[in-house]
């Protein structure tokens, strides 16, 4: 299964990202978008799966540079 993910950043003006993932994102996962690191806070199905693809809406928050992973 390939997860096509819409990463939406909460609480800010960041435009987020769209990318494929080969493992389903989980709460607490970290993802790099541009030159910043974000943490997954919510994972929802966006639309029904089609073929080998599953479509996810993932909300993330910006990780403070001083936060430990």
């Amino acid at each position: 299964m390939i997860y096509k993910v819409s990463y939406v950043v909460s609480g800010g003006r960041h435009p987020g990202a769209i990318m494929n993932e080969y493992e389903r994102p989980q709460l607490g996962d970290r993802v790099e978008i541009g030159d910043k690191v974000f943490e997954v806070t919510e994972v929802l199905e966006m639309t029904p799966p089609r073929g080998d693809f599953q479509y996810l809406h993932v909300t993330v928050r910006l990780v403070d540079e001083n936060e430990n992973p």
């Binding site: 987020g16 769209i18 990318m19």
Partner: peptide, 10 residues
């Protein structure tokens, strides 16, 4: 204005 970042497969 930045609209979106696009990663692998897009």
């Amino acid at each position: 204005r930045t609209q979106v970042y696009l990663g692998r497969g897009q």
